[in-house]
Simulated assay, not measured.
Amino acid sequence: MAQTPNDSSRDLLSHVLVPVAHEDDARTTATSLEPYRPTEVTALHVVEKGEGVPDKTPVEQSEEAATEAYAAFRTVFPDANDHTVYARDVVEAIFEAADEVDASAIAYRSRRGNRLVKFLSGDRSLKLVTQANRPVIALPEANTD
């Protein structure tokens, strides 16, 4: 019988999908995840597309940011997979990527922002934890001591 994301017998950390935004975020997120020792890890970078409006950044610049983020992530998880997607809705793209790579869970580190920024962005963290079809792990701040 194939396991589904909702199969409670599946190890939570067997294959963790980790969204990363840029190089520093990737390094910090990987450091936060490392103590939990997941079996397999896939770093995900979502290139935000405008769909009829100008993109936030040129695609080439976004792809370069993804490459740098993956390299930073691999300083902590050398065998990590990477997965890049192009989408307008970042949270939906994370869910779709989790399905594509058959992730057992999604692990993320909340990005700081004031209430206005969260309101305007639709508070992605809230959507991530309330609409996922698999476990979502909110990582604590990395201890940089």
Rank of each mutant, 00 (worst) to 15 (best):
M1N: 12
M1D: 12
A2L: 14
A2K: 12
T4K: 12
P5Y: 11
N6A: 15
D7C: 08
D7G: 05
D7H: 09
S8L: 14
L12C: 04
L13C: 11
L13N: 07
L13R: 13
V16I: 13
L17H: 05
V18N: 08
V18R: 08
V18I: 08
P19D: 03
P19E: 02
P19G: 04
A21C: 06
E23Y: 03
D24G: 13
D24L: 14
D25Y: 09
A26T: 06
R27M: 08
R27G: 06
R27F: 12
T29I: 12
T29V: 07
T29H: 11
S32L: 00
S32H: 12
L33E: 03
L33P: 07
E34P: 07
E34H: 15
P35M: 01
R37G: 11
R37I: 11
T39Q: 13
E40H: 14
E40R: 15
E40Q: 13
V41Y: 06
A43N: 05
L44H: 07
L44N: 02
H45C: 02
V47I: 14
V47L: 14
E48R: 13
K49N: 10
G52M: 02
V53G: 00
V53K: 00
K56E: 09
K56T: 13
T57N: 13
T57G: 06
P58W: 04
V59P: 02
Q61K: 15
E63M: 05
E63Y: 06
E64F: 04
A66S: 02
A66E: 07
A66I: 10
T67D: 02
E68V: 01
A69N: 12
R74L: 10
R74E: 03
T75C: 06
T75L: 07
T75F: 10
F77S: 04
P78I: 10
P78N: 08
D79R: 09
N81V: 09
N81W: 10
N81Y: 10
H83E: 02
H83L: 08
T84K: 15
Y86Q: 11
A87P: 00
A87C: 06
R88N: 12
D89P: 04
V90Y: 02
V91H: 12
E92C: 02
A93N: 09
A93M: 01
F95C: 01
A97K: 03
A98F: 09
A98M: 04
D99K: 10
V101I: 07
A103S: 08
S104Y: 13
S104C: 12
A105F: 09
A105M: 06
Y108L: 14
Y108V: 08
S110D: 13
S110Q: 14
R111V: 01
L116S: 05
V117T: 14
F119V: 08
G122D: 00
G122P: 07
R124T: 05
S125E: 10
L126R: 13
L126Y: 13
T130P: 02
T130D: 01
A132P: 04
A132I: 09
N133T: 14
R134Q: 11
R134E: 04
I137D: 05
A138F: 05
A138H: 10
L139V: 08
A142G: 02
N143G: 11
D145P: 15
